[in-house]
Amino acid sequence: MAVRQRGWKKFFGFYLPLLGFTVFTLFPFYWMFITSIKPDQHLYNLRISPFWTTRPTLEHYQFLFQRTLFGHWLLNTLLVAVVSTAISLFCGILAGYALARLRFRWAGTLGTAIFITYLVPQTLLFIPLTGVVDFFHLLDTPWALIFTYPTFLIPFCTWLLMGYFKAIPRELEEYARIDGATRLQAMRKIVLPVAIPGILSAGIFAFTLSWNEFLYALVFLSSPQTKTIPVGVVSELMRGDVLFWGPLMAGALLGSVPVALIYSFFVEHYVAGLTGAVKG
């Protein structure tokens, strides 16, 4: 749909709302940024305008890297997010394909069952879950998160990919089968390549969620150098009644940059991927 309106109508109907959305969405980020480069004396001074600073400083960023283990946290978070996303995608692809394509009596029920795992409240289950994680001797290792994050990533991946696989014409697969390919080969060589946008969007979704997770990371990890960004930043920079606003906001910004970069590369694919899911 091309923009066909003109003049003031276009302004009020298009640019103004768009501007509104941009301000609402991005203002907190501007706020994080400006807080992260303000010296403390300016931060706490009500008499000067809070929107900019005349004395920008990098001291909060320095603090973040020199006085905390931010670099470690960043790498840990990255590792956990990448691996748990990979696992979730692997499981989601297989399960999504099976649920969408294979005839099996309990397929419908199973799909529902996988979906309703979303209803299981996380806030208290971390306590029994710790027992399970300890049973596998995973406490205080990244594996604790790598194996538990998929519990809330797989359901979404499965459902998204189910929709996508359903949208791919069955004939494509059947031609390959007539040519002598096994089911698995047909899936790998025919279905998966077509489904790549869908897989990408599921992957981005999963990556974001594991990047953000707080509670499991708080409970399962104890060594300072194994923590993830959200937990590390909160543990080290919220000290009772003194919040280190500068470094906190610097951490928040730096903590979102990697994901933001990935998004800007993939956003078109992401939208395309979801499009596939909708058709199904």
Binding site: F126, I127, T130, G131, L218, V231, V234
Partner: peptide, 16 residues
């Protein structure tokens, strides 16, 4: 760790 999060850790430690 942040003081507010201590009890979550203690409870899980005891239970597991």
């Amino acid at each position: 760790i942040n003081m507010n999060d201590l009890q979550a850790r203690i409870s899980t430690a005891i239970e597991s």
